[in-house]
């Protein structure tokens, strides 16, 4: 699907404010334990890492394992410092890299 991430982030904030950021990523987080209709094992397919960069500097990251539910959901925080870009990055188990950015205006 082309809609692979939903991001909830304020568009505006005042300097010093603690901002709540949320991400919901479309991904099966297949554990490798499940079997299909015919009993064949479905291969493991998970996201292994998620990061949030604020004007290029990493403010939050997570190493993810099989115990993260399908369609991973994360809420975390960052302090509003200056206007710029919040970049959300996530990485598949075979190194596939994905990224989506939103703009933030700090007043």
């Amino acid at each position: 699907m082309s809609t692979t991430i939903r991001i909830a982030a304020p568009k505006q904030a005042s300097r010093g404010e603690v901002l709540e950021l949320k991400a919901l990523i479309r991904h099966p987080m297949e554990t490798g334990y499940r079997r299909d209709l015919y009993g064949k094992q479905i291969p493991e397919n998970i996201l292994t890492r998620f990061e949030c960069l604020y004007n290029g500097e990493r403010v939050f990251a997570g190493e993810l394992f099989r115990a993260i539910a399908a369609d991973p959901f994360l809420t975390f925080y960052t302090v509003a410092l200056e206007s710029g870009t919040l970049e959300f990055r996530w990485v598949g188990q075979d190194g596939q890299r994905y990224s989506e950015s939103v703009e933030l205006e700090v007043l």
């Binding site: 990493r58 939050f60 115990a67 993260i68 302090v79």
Partner: peptide, 28 residues
């Protein structure tokens, strides 16, 4: 999660830029 087939759930990396040391997610 000690009783899961693999016990790791996640490892989060934070810093002073986070402002608040709180994370929410959904697990198996």
């Amino acid at each position: 999660a000690e009783e899961n087939p693999q016990p790791n759930i996640a490892r989060f990396e934070l810093g002073p830029r986070a402002g608040r040391a709180r994370v929410q997610t959904r697990i198996r």
